[in-house]
Amino acid sequence: MAGNDAQRAFRDALGTFATGVTIATTIGESGEPVGVTANSFNSVSIDPPLVLWSLAKSSYSRSAFAESGHFAIHVLAATQEGLSNDFARRGGDKFAGVDWRGGALGSPVLGDYAALFECRTRHQYEGGDHVILVGEVIAHDARDVAPLLFHGGRYAERRPRPGASEPSVDIEHGRFTDDFLFYLISRAHFQTSRPTRDKLARFGMDMGQYLTLALLSMDRPLAADAIAARLAHTGHAPDAAALAAMVAKGLLVEGGEGWELTEAGRERLVETLAIGQAFEADLADHFTAAELAETKAVLRRIIELTGADVPIGWRG
Rank of each mutant, 00 (worst) to 15 (best):
A228W: 00
D225W: 07
I185F: 10
T196D: 05
A214F: 04
G258A: 09
A188I: 07
F176V: 03
L251T: 01
R187I: 14
A228M: 10
A245F: 03
K199F: 00
A226W: 02
M218G: 15
L231Q: 00
F190N: 10
A237I: 01
H151T: 07
A281T: 15
D282S: 15
F176A: 13
H233E: 14
R154P: 02
D225E: 11
E257W: 00
T262W: 06
T262C: 11
A264P: 04
G204R: 05
I171A: 11
L222A: 13
F287M: 12
A228S: 14
T272G: 00
A264M: 04
L273A: 06
V253R: 09
F176C: 08
L149S: 02
A237L: 04
R266M: 12
H173C: 04
V169C: 11
K249Q: 15
E166W: 10
R197L: 14
R187K: 11
P167I: 10
E257M: 11
H173P: 03
D285M: 13
G256W: 05
A278N: 09
A188K: 09
A244P: 08
Q191T: 14
A245D: 14
G256C: 09
G258I: 04
Y155F: 11
G265D: 02
T272Y: 02
T196F: 05
T262Q: 07
A201K: 12
D225C: 01
A244Y: 00
G208I: 01
L243C: 08
